[in-house]
Simulated scan of single mutants.
Amino acid sequence: MSAEFMPAIGSVVFDTTLSAVGEVVSWEDGHDVWLRPLGDGPEWPANRDRLRPASPAEKMSVGVSRANSISRRRI
């Protein structure tokens, strides 16, 4: 992704370094971004050059994974 990509706080992005979807929660030094997973888990720092907007399929995949995890706990 180009250096011009500046995701807004609250936007959902795909971190190509970790192959993970996260919500932008803050900026640090104008270059590093802190992301929060859409499901449970700790926040992580990401380089904005390695981010791109998450596709609808990537966002849906997170929801499906979360639903599967919940259903497995009920068994």
Rank of each mutant, 00 (worst) to 15 (best):
Leu51Gly: 06
Glu23Ser: 15
Val13Glu: 04
Ala20Lys: 14
Asn47Pro: 03
Pro7Asn: 06
Val13Asp: 03
Ser19Glu: 14
Gly22Ile: 06
Arg66Ile: 08
Pro37Asn: 09
Arg52Asp: 07
Val12Gln: 08
Ser61Met: 09
Pro42Ile: 14
Ser11Lys: 04
Arg36Tyr: 00
Gly39Leu: 09
Met60Pro: 04
Phe5Lys: 02
Asn68Gly: 14
Ser69His: 10
Ala3Lys: 13
Trp34Tyr: 09
Trp27Val: 00
Glu23Val: 15
Arg48Thr: 02
Asp29Ser: 11
Trp44Phe: 12
Asp29Thr: 06
Val25Cys: 07
Asp15Pro: 02
Ser61Ile: 01
Val24Trp: 06
Ala67Ser: 06
Val12Phe: 07
Arg66Trp: 05
Pro45Trp: 04
Phe14Cys: 01
Gly63Cys: 08
Val21His: 01
Ala3Gln: 15
Leu18Val: 03
Ser55Pro: 11
Glu58Tyr: 04
Gly41Val: 12
Val33Pro: 01
Trp34Cys: 04
Trp34Pro: 00
Asp49Val: 13
Asp32Lys: 11
Gly30Gln: 06
Glu23Ile: 11
Gly63Asn: 12
Ser19Lys: 14
Gly10Cys: 05
Thr16Val: 15
Asn47Met: 07
Gly63His: 11
Leu35Cys: 02
Arg36Cys: 04
Arg36Ile: 01
Ile70Trp: 04
Trp34Asn: 03
Met1Cys: 12
Pro56Met: 02
Glu43Leu: 12
Val21Thr: 05
Pro53Phe: 01
Glu28Asn: 10
Val12Ile: 15
Ala46Trp: 07
Pro45Val: 06
